[in-house]
Design a protein around this nucleic acid. Structure first.
Lengths: 356, 356
DNA sequence: TTGGTTTATGCAATCGATTACACGCGGCCA
DNA sequence: TGGCCGCGTGTAATCGATTGCATAAACCAA
């Protein structure tokens, strides 16, 4: 029960154990350089004083904070938060702390990023967003002696940064192919935000699958959205307004798929009876939605873990001047009930109900 | 474009501006104690050298890290992650960093908490979990000169800690009352984990509403679960096995409600036709579920923000030896389509389909 | 003009831990 | 026996910023 008025320092331990502070320090960070008996005496003194190391002192001297900075566009998004979770676990296992930073963009955010990195509060940056300006990043991490950086989830093309991601083109292709395999010939796509790399890649994969199967790729079947439920919901109205409607839709993520289905219900459209839909991400709710969602599952935990691993490796072993790391993970198609074989040609038309 | 081989320190700035380091330091932290002209010279020197402050140095001297530690049971849970989001915003606005820590419990976790707090890496603890041992916490934060602590979301009864939460009993009462108002007389409850305070409080609110309305409170209508979708799903089977089934259910959170509904569908039960259900939390998916979920919306953003505010106030103004802060927020009932008036006495029974 | 106050700045100690260098000692080999 | 090695330890400098105290200059009131 060491209730200390003032913090106990390494000095206190040294005094009690009758050694110098240097020896105490060594006993902690390089135990084999200290004799058995001294080590025991120090251990006892530490217990007696209730000493805990002051990280600020160590950081100052060693120029490392045992902390990584994770910058992400939206913590609330379950996709990111589960990656963050995996990152935290990995970091914890290796004795690193995790600072989180919301990226809203604008100058303020960049300044904050800079502050954290250049002020020795974090030893490396794990970036879960590809839309940060590449040159700015290079300036930031290149300055002040090369701060380790790993970009995860999204890619910054031609940047040469270390990257851990999934192959979105290939996965989108496979998702679309699944619909093709079910006999669908008219396949739409809920596109993500314009500027977003991931959304562009998924569009490419979708187009590639259609092209390979010689299927029509009508521009009006590419319904633009924003990766969130609200925009998926809004998209449903535009979908219903189409004169020639797809029988299946590949949504660029689960959230937009869910919003879309929610919107379609207001028109009396049933999934998969009237429209098959395949999503992306396999959110927690996907297996319990109505209907359970067919979706591409990204290995989120693996992704977060490997990204954290890579970053911490870089932090601990800064000698890596070799080629940039590039880890590409494979997503897995999870077939549930939101996709089915295309209905016979003369399927019953849904009642046309006005949206609420 | 200050590409620095070695970090630039306050010394470099001082040299260039022809002043002492003391003056540079003051120019940064107490600008009004430095003359107009000197300040300008220093500002210029800072720009020229690309100086950024070394937080480790400052922390060491000032014994404060400008960082708070947020400890939570599960980052992936959208409920927590949106609170975390609000916390981060508030902290960012006040110049504080946010360290996150997953609590898995067991000795390891406690040790990590301790490390962070006692090592000067964090100035205060924001705890989003009521199940941490109170005495241990008091030891931790009481030792080493009183580390500020705010408990949010959940309460640690009789602990006297500063707390920000919602009134779960009252909200659960109101949710149940909503079902009563719709004419339901047989109302079940998906109970959360036993040891969890929140889940206990919601059970109390449920019971209170039933008692007030003189409605039966059969023990077998309290279906135990775990706050997650899987357990909600599993609960559906037990529900179906009941000889006398409730016509409405108050679920202790949205996730279990969703899992439960998902399970019920396998038995051909329709919501709200056969069972009305009200959830808790208003997760993002709630308005877009099928059916859209009636639920109690907790003011998550407000809660996170206020908790962060309170904690940072305490960190910055440690003189508060007054009464513990206690902020109780009110939740809001959001009525959607998962609840409806009770069906007429002789409602058509659902086909009994075997669960898949 | 004088004594006192304010303002702007510098000097140097300090925060707590790490680590380069040095030293003493025992053992080993030639 | 002398020289060398390596182990265990201590001494003291160091990391970068802050701050108590001192001082000089400027200002003001009498």
């Amino acid at each position: 029960m060491p209730i200390d008025k003032k913090t106990t320092t390494i000095q206190d331990v040294a005094r009690l154990a009758n050694v110098s502070t240097a020896t105490v320090s060594r006993a902690l960070s390089a135990p084999d350089r200290v004799s058995e008996t001294t080590r025991a005496r120090i251990a006892e003194a530490i217990r007696a004083t209730g000493y805990t190391l002051n990280q600020a002192g160590r950081s100052l001297r060693q120029r490392s904070a045992k902390t990584i900075l994770v910058a992400l566009p939206d913590i609330r998004n379950p996709f990111f938060s589960s990656i963050l979770d995996a990152i935290e676990r990995e970091a914890a296992g290796r004795g690193f702390g995790v600072l989180v930073l919301n990226l809203y963009f604008g100058h303020e955010t960049i300044r904050r990023l800079q502050d954290f990195l250049l002020s020795n509060r974090a030893d490396g940056l794990l970036l879960l967003d590809g839309s940060v300006d590449m040159h700015m990043l290079r300036n930031l991490t290149g300055a002040a002696g090369s701060i380790p950086l790993v970009v995860a989830c999204e890619e910054i093309p031609n940047s040469g940064f270390h990257t851990v991601l999934t192959d979105n083109v290939e996965a989108a292709d496979r998702a679309t192919q699944h619909l093709i395999d079910l006999g669908h010939r008219k396949i739409g796509h809920l596109v993500g935000p314009d500027h977003n790399i991931v959304s562009r890649e998924r569009l490419i994969g979708y187009s590639r699958a259609l092209a390979r199967a010689n299927l029509p790729a009508l521009p009006e079947w590419q319904l633009r959205g924003n990766f969130d439920m609200e925009s998926g919901f809004a998209t449903a109205a535009r979908f219903m307004a189409l004169s020639d409607r797809p029988t299946a839709v590949f949504a660029s993520n689960d959230e937009s798929a869910i919003g879309f289905l929610s919107g379609l219900r207001n028109y009396g459209m049933m999934c998969p009876r009237d429209v098959s839909i395949v999503g992306f991400d396999d959110l927690g709710v996907a297996p319990h939605y109505a209907p359970p969602l067919t979706t591409m599952r990204q290995p989120r935990e693996t992704l977060g873990r490997m990204a954290a691993e890579a970053l911490i490796d870089l932090v601990e072993e800064p000698l890596s001047l070799s080629a940039p790391i590039r880890i590409v993970l494979r997503s897995e198609l999870v077939v549930r009930e939101s996709t089915s074989r295309v209905a016979s040609i003369v399927s019953p038309q849904p009642e046309e109900i006005v949206a609420s």
